[in-house]
Deep mutational scan, measured.
Amino acid sequence: KLLSSIEQACDICRLKKLKCSKEKPKCAKCLKNNWECRYSPKTKRSPLTRAHLTEVESRLERLE
């Protein structure tokens, strides 16, 4: 599967780190437990900047 097509777990399953069936409108866990089942939009991760990478590398060197 391509990364862009990976389905996201519902908010509660993601928060509780449960295996989500990803069914809509309610996944199996939410249906069974009568929880409100919501699927928040995916958040875009910002790409690493060179400055951040350099900072992490220098912190790693100090720890070694």
Rank of each mutant, 00 (worst) to 15 (best):
E55F: 10
K32F: 09
E61G: 15
Y39T: 08
C10S: 01
C30V: 05
L2D: 14
C27Q: 03
C13N: 01
E64T: 14
L3N: 10
A9N: 04
E55M: 14
E57P: 06
E61T: 15
C20Y: 06
D11S: 05
E57D: 06
L48C: 05
K29W: 02
R38H: 13
C37Q: 07
A9F: 00
R62H: 10
K19S: 06
R62C: 09
R59D: 00
L63T: 02
E36W: 07
R50D: 05
K1M: 14
L48G: 03
R14I: 02
K22R: 11
Y39W: 10
C37S: 05
L31F: 14
L53K: 05
E55V: 11
S58D: 11
S5Y: 10
A51D: 05
K44V: 14
K24S: 15
S4A: 14
K17H: 08
Y39P: 01
C30P: 01
C10M: 05
R59W: 01
S5K: 07
T54Q: 11
K16C: 06
L18W: 11
N33L: 12
N33Y: 12
E55C: 14
N34Q: 15
K29G: 06
E23R: 09
Y39A: 04
T49K: 02
A28H: 12
T54G: 07
K32A: 11
C30N: 05
Y39H: 06
W35S: 14
C30D: 01
N33R: 11
P25T: 07
N34T: 15
I12L: 09
A28G: 09
L60M: 13
H52V: 01
S5A: 09
W35N: 14
C10I: 00
P41Y: 04
K17N: 06
S21N: 08
L31H: 14
N33C: 12
K26T: 08
L2C: 10
A9S: 05
L53H: 03
A28D: 14
L15M: 12
K22E: 04
K42I: 10
K16N: 06
P47M: 05
K44G: 03
E61W: 13
E36C: 15
S40C: 05
L60E: 00
T43N: 09
C27L: 00
L60S: 06
C20G: 04
L53V: 11
P41L: 05
L48V: 02
R14A: 12
C30I: 04
E7N: 09
E23L: 09
W35A: 15
K22C: 01
V56A: 00
C20F: 06
K42C: 07
L2P: 14
Q8G: 08
L31Q: 10
S58W: 13
K44F: 08
Y39C: 01
C37V: 02
L18I: 07
L60I: 10
L3Y: 10
E61D: 13
C10R: 06
N33H: 12
V56R: 01
N34E: 14
I6H: 10
A51M: 11
C13H: 02
